[in-house]
Simulated assay, not measured.
Amino acid sequence: MVEDDDLTPNLMSNQMWSSNGEFVPPDGICWVSVLSCLLLACSYVGSLYVWRSDLPRDHPAVIKRRFTSVLIVSAVSPVFVWAWKMYTGVMPGPSLLALMGIRFEGLIPAIILPLLLTMVLFLGPLIQLAMDCPWGFMDGIRVTFDPWFWALCLSDMRWLRNQVVAPLTEELVFRACMLPMLVPCTSPSTAIFTCPLFFGVAHFHHVIELLRFRQGTVSGIFLAAVFQFSYTAVFGAYTAFIFIRTGHLVGPVLCHSFCNHMGFPALGMALEHPHRFTVLSCYLLGVLLFLLLLFPLTDPIFYSLPTPVCTLASVPSSLCIS
């Protein structure tokens, strides 16, 4: 009896390298990559709702349960990338952890420069906060180094969610795991704008809770959701850009935490500020400096060339070179 042909897709046989050494992605890899990213996004969002509760999302009990869920999904998320590698036959030189931005080369610049760049963008809001803060500069320094202040922060479930758990798990899942799967089938530049779509759509789940607890009108809730999708998609593109340029996870995580702390710039308050001209000038200066420093401060030469995820690109990209 003749054995049946193996019907399992064998993408490994289609993988090859061109004569000039460039990586040629296997046939069908894009479908596998997109479906893998979609499954990963659904797993992350779905984990938030495995616990049945009538309490709002900011209740400490709800936050603790969701910590458990997303941390489990985040711990399992590298398995998605590993399974994707095995199924598609993509065997890059860098290790799995390096592809996900967990490496030591260029670590110090990756901690400092992307965060500095993000703070430059928020120059206006930072100046506005400094003007309105009742504390003096030295008071702020003392509070920053006060262990009791940090103990209070760490005991606040909402602070832990917004500043630690959400930035770490979301960047791990939506950047470190998704970008290595998307880059081979598109390009680094296309992946930067594709990856945030999963991230933005994932935030639509807030609509469910707002409608459930009737926190506003239906039209108002959906308008807020559209705005949040737009904002998170743009932010996701920015952190994806940082991840590809630096090849590190730590930069996007720190930038995410900082942006969660700052929130969306209060332009309305800036327009009504007593020192409106100074504040608005700082807003404009911050944006201009950000655009000028965007590529210099993320130059891959600071982070050890080539960045691991760039080795998966099927065609050379200007994002991956110094």
Score class of each variant (00 low, 15 high):
1 M>P: 13
5 D>H: 12
7 L>Q: 14
13 S>L: 11
16 M>W: 08
17 W>V: 12
18 S>L: 13
19 S>W: 05
24 V>T: 10
27 D>I: 05
28 G>Q: 14
31 W>V: 13
46 G>D: 06
46 G>H: 07
47 S>Q: 05
49 Y>D: 06
50 V>H: 12
51 W>L: 15
59 H>C: 00
59 H>G: 00
62 V>F: 06
67 F>K: 09
70 V>L: 05
72 I>T: 15
74 S>Y: 02
77 S>Q: 06
79 V>H: 04
80 F>R: 03
81 V>D: 01
82 W>F: 14
82 W>C: 03
84 W>D: 01
99 L>N: 08
100 M>T: 03
103 R>D: 04
105 E>A: 15
107 L>M: 11
111 I>N: 03
115 L>W: 08
115 L>M: 11
115 L>I: 07
117 L>C: 04
119 M>T: 06
121 L>A: 13
126 L>T: 12
129 L>M: 14
134 P>Y: 01
134 P>L: 01
137 F>C: 07
141 I>P: 10
152 L>F: 04
154 L>E: 09
156 D>C: 09
157 M>Q: 10
163 Q>L: 12
164 V>N: 08
166 A>E: 10
170 E>G: 02
172 L>W: 14
172 L>Q: 02
179 L>I: 15
179 L>D: 02
180 P>D: 07
181 M>K: 07
185 C>Q: 09
185 C>T: 11
187 S>V: 05
189 S>P: 04
190 T>Q: 11
195 C>E: 15
197 L>Y: 00
201 V>Q: 00
201 V>S: 00
204 F>N: 01
207 V>S: 05
207 V>W: 02
208 I>R: 12
209 E>C: 00
211 L>P: 03
215 Q>C: 03
215 Q>Y: 02
217 T>F: 10
218 V>Y: 04
219 S>C: 02
220 G>M: 07
224 A>T: 08
224 A>H: 06
227 F>K: 06
229 F>I: 04
236 G>W: 03
236 G>D: 02
237 A>D: 03
241 F>V: 06
241 F>P: 01
245 R>N: 08
251 G>P: 01
252 P>W: 08
254 L>V: 07
257 S>P: 10
258 F>I: 01
259 C>H: 10
260 N>C: 06
261 H>P: 00
266 A>W: 05
277 F>A: 13
280 L>Q: 04
283 Y>W: 09
284 L>E: 01
286 G>V: 09
288 L>A: 15
288 L>V: 15
288 L>T: 11
292 L>S: 08
293 L>V: 11
294 L>Q: 06
295 F>R: 09
299 D>R: 13
299 D>C: 13
300 P>W: 05
310 C>Q: 12
311 T>R: 07
311 T>G: 04
312 L>A: 09
